[in-house]
Design a protein around this nucleic acid. Structure first.
Lengths: 127, 127
DNA sequence: TGTCAACCTAGACGAATGTCGAAACAAGCG
DNA sequence: CGCTTGTTTCGACATTCGTCTAGGTTGACA
């Protein structure tokens, strides 16, 4: 099995609802870790918000003061965390976000309005 | 000292809606990084899901095969990331989650339904 | 007041991470 | 075929991270 699988099948227990089991933590922590770098956070944002749902590496690289290999390294990290998907078409490589896992991470962090927490927008659905 | 501030005042631009600016990325990345460890993910979950909204360190430590100082170190990381708040009462120290930043992180990861349509509708400005 | 328990801080050490330059691989084009 | 451009891999380095042991600080209690 490749490095980025495993995450896809999981559902999403809200973190503040019940204690997340060790194996779920072990599965999702790498995804959060991948988001724990400002460059990768911006890269993912650029990919996820791209017109048409995908973006060329050649549009990502010049947006940072980093060398090509370094950007490639960060993209690989995002890929191995299962957050994005790469696809080579001719000379260029295009990246696409994987909404499922983003949704899963968001659901995990969602605070349900239990107790003294007047948080609106309670959404805990899980596809 | 003020290591955990800065996060509180921010608004929440959906990551897939618009490109997250560098300074927002730099501010939120440490919070994601703090979540990027299985132990801390479980710790936060135990804190956030605790009865009464808070939990004693003495209830957290025995749940892991780690020494006290190591748990303390992870709790300090969560504290400095602004994810939790500590409060000493007598002999014991109690930890409490900060729902605001969790909500903010969740909002950032929220995917606008069916990312195939990049039509911009409503966006929240954040400066 | 003395003693004990709970918790944190300090220092150390191996492992992982972020970054780079150089080189290799892939695709298009003259 | 060989050259150019775009992208990834490789090897190296400094920095950061996760964990430990040892020691310090705070508060409860006899």
């Amino acid at each position: 099995m490749s490095k980025q699988a495993a995450v896809d099948g999981l559902c999403c227990p809200p973190l503040s609802e019940r204690r997340v089991p060790a194996e779920t933590a072990a599965t999702l922590a790498p995804a959060f870790k991948a988001l724990g770098d400002p460059v990768r956070l911006q890269l993912l944002s650029m990919i996820a918000s791209a017109e048409g749902g995908e973006i060329c590496v050649c549009d990502l690289t010049p947006a940072f003061d980093l060398t090509g290999p370094t950007i490639s390294h960060h993209l690989r990290t995002l890929r191995e965390a299962g957050l994005v998907d790469a696809d080579r078409r001719g000379t260029w490589v295009y990246y696409r976000a994987r909404p499922a896992i983003l949704h899963q991470l968001a659901a995990l962090l969602t605070v349900v309005p239990t107790g003294a927490d007047p948080a609106p927008a309670a959404r805990s659905e899980c596809s």
